[in-house]
Design a protein around this nucleic acid. Sequence first.
DNA 1: GTGGTCTAGACCACG
DNA 2: GTGGTCTAGACCACA
Lengths: 123, 123, 123, 123
Amino acid sequence: MFQIDANHPTPLYAQLERSIRFAIATGKLRIGDQLPTVRQLAVDLRINANTVAKVYAELERAGVLETRRGVGTFVSARPNEAASRRDRERHLRELAEHFISETQTGGFSIDDVIEHLEKRRRK
Amino acid sequence: MFQIDANHPTPLYAQLERSIRFAIATGKLRIGDQLPTVRQLAVDLRINANTVAKVYAELERAGVLETRRGVGTFVSARPNEAASRRDRERHLRELAEHFISETQTGGFSIDDVIEHLEKRRRK
Amino acid sequence: MFQIDANHPTPLYAQLERSIRFAIATGKLRIGDQLPTVRQLAVDLRINANTVAKVYAELERAGVLETRRGVGTFVSARPNEAASRRDRERHLRELAEHFISETQTGGFSIDDVIEHLEKRRRK
Amino acid sequence: MFQIDANHPTPLYAQLERSIRFAIATGKLRIGDQLPTVRQLAVDLRINANTVAKVYAELERAGVLETRRGVGTFVSARPNEAASRRDRERHLRELAEHFISETQTGGFSIDDVIEHLEKRRRK
DNA sequence: GTGGTCTAGACCACG
DNA sequence: GTGGTCTAGACCACA
């Protein structure tokens, strides 16, 4: 479900967090969907349950997930529309600029990049 | 020259190592080119000189760099690693995943993101 | 009637127990008064009936409440605990500490807070 | 320095977090002050170092503390002035209303409460 | 020596 | 059975 590489220098919890956010952004996980239980995901990924729990907790604080005590963990309905349209656009532009500069450093054209993202988008 | 983000969870040394390898792989650094001194690069990147030295040492062990005592550090003459297709794809995938997780935090869908990038391409 | 905050890190049962004790200590509930049924209170507070039942049982063990089978739960006749000065001070200290930590998160100094409260007093 | 009660049902980490925020709000800790090291505070409070580390990490995420890798943990210069004056006032009013309703439930007058806060304010 | 990450495993709160 | 808290202890990144 989520991909983790124990040999990669990025901390496991950061990889998992990113991976979950990605699944939501690409529609693989939708609002209200239940995530695997902490212990199940730990077994699947062969990491410690505490590491999974830490990620779920962090994403809950960020408003991305919601946990219901004794029930499970779910994708939260986004209360994410705080910033103004203008601010949001500026924010996206900044993120995109940084990203494009990184990919160009890696020798990728903007076409390569868009093509890659489209492949990863769930239809 | 090389990009480092102290807030990124990936260890500084790993970020720097990757950054140098890619500069070489993409031709920004060529065989025989001199790298900045350990201390200069540490100042530029605002990190500890030990961290830079560790990276140079590791890359020397890997045959990517060469140190000539009292002179400086240079890109080694070895017929090394033009980044393979596989490595390049993996790199792009990681950059994209990180980027998408950031935009998701900002409340943007992958569709928003692709649309934005397409607008930038047209210009 | 009793206030419970599901997002507060203190366990629900502890919040409810404290809340009932204070209702008694401050005279809102008097000896012989009937408490809501377990199920009714669970519905009102949107918590599980088991949690309410556990609190009632604990308070019965402590001699604070009394259950008459088939009738209901009542404030016990025991000559109990008018909250001691010490307990009351500790309670106020905890409430204040929690409140100040919240306002600090919002970027308010303790002076801001006191000033605000004084304005409210004058009205 | 910070007070923790292991028998209190509130989680240790939540007690400690509140306690640190309180120390900052009341001026016992000032911008730039260094906090005890994770391990030292753990020893002092007789709790596990991980618990302390968790609190420091949470407060860093909240922008209250700042850690410098390999150096220590410090009170951050507050970047807390995002919300508008109007929003901030509304926020404080809501927090205060909630707090006053709690203290009144406990049988305290608003005068009791202000007096208590003034005692705790550092001159 | 500082904080950060991860593990294994215990016990608790809740449904 | 679900998530939450805490512990003890190992190893790593950084200054």
